[in-house]
């Protein structure tokens, strides 16, 4: 069932963007300086906007309404990577995570704009414009914090050491993803991983950071989550679940 494989893939992409946008939104009103409070909120808004587009496609494929998918699923039903559900941490942690994710999105989107699925192509084309800006912004931040002070460097290195393995989960294929690759609906994650690795390693090294060598076991299944997702969902879903699905807000 290629349609089913596609739906699963789209859900995983939507969930990644949504949970990351949710985490980043926690910085609103708490960022290190006013201008960046506004800038990082833009990135969070964009990620939520991208999730919305992908959830809409998911609805076209399965009939499931985005708000039901977001607010009425339990942790085990979410398909995001553990990378995006980790608490926001310090500024170095959030910025490094966003950078690693932005590189992934960029290498992915530059291929998805050629997808044989017209809806995927359409959404990817729109999203890509924003992602180019995200990557530029987060690259600039990573460089400045990596090369700034001893403290900023140490914090960045610590964040990278913690996040690197988690980021690799982005390249673990879903069940049946082969079919989609064969039909050129989505790119081969192996190729993406190589492109991602090259870009991240180049920029992180130029920013004075060491790529972690000891790689822990990469989380394998997107149905498996850290305890943080359950906490996140409790917060996220509490108002929506105070009423039945279908009640308007």
């Amino acid at each position: 069932m290629p349609n089913n494989s596609l739906a699963n893939k789209i859900l995983s992409v939507a969930d990644d963007s949504f949970i990351l946008g949710h985490r980043n939104s926690e910085w609103a009103g708490h960022a290190p300086i006013l201008e960046e409070d506004i800038a990082f909120a833009n990135i969070a808004l964009d990620e939520l906007g991208h999730a919305q587009l992908w959830y809409e496609l998911y609805q076209e494929l399965t009939g499931a309404e985005p708000d039901r998918v977001i607010f009425f699923r339990s942790a085990a039903e979410w398909r995001n990577t553990q990378l995006v559900e980790l608490p926001k941490g310090d500024w170095a942690f959030s910025m490094t995570r966003q950078f690693l994710f932005d590189v992934y999105e960029n290498v992915s989107l530059e291929r998805l704009v050629h997808s044989t699925n017209p809806r995927v192509q359409e959404i990817a084309t729109k999203i890509r414009t924003e992602e180019i800006y995200h990557l530029r912004h987060t690259s600039n931040w990573v460089k400045r914090l990596g090369l700034g002070t001893d403290e900023s460097h140490a914090r960045m290195q610590r964040a990278l050491d913690e996040l690197w393995t988690y980021a690799l989960q982005l390249f673990v294929p879903l069940e049946n993803e082969r079919e989609l690759i064969a039909e050129n609906v989505v790119p081969d994650l192996g190729i993406l991983r190589d492109a991602w690795q090259e870009k991240t390693v180049t920029h992180l090294s130029a920013s004075g950071l060491q790529i972690p060598e000891n790689i822990d076991s990469v989380p394998n299944l997107r149905a498996e989550h850290t305890e943080h997702l359950a906490e996140l969902l409790q917060d996220l879903q509490q108002v929506a679940r105070s009423e039945k699905f279908g009640v308007e807000w």
């Binding site: 300086i33 006013l34 201008e35 960046e36 506004i38 800038a39 833009n42 800006y133 530029r136 912004h137 600039n140 400045r144």
Partner: peptide, 18 residues
Amino acid sequence: HASDAEMALENARDVFVR
């Protein structure tokens, strides 16, 4: 407010082109 020119241009975009 920005630490350098490159960031100033980005901050300008984020503050004034919402």
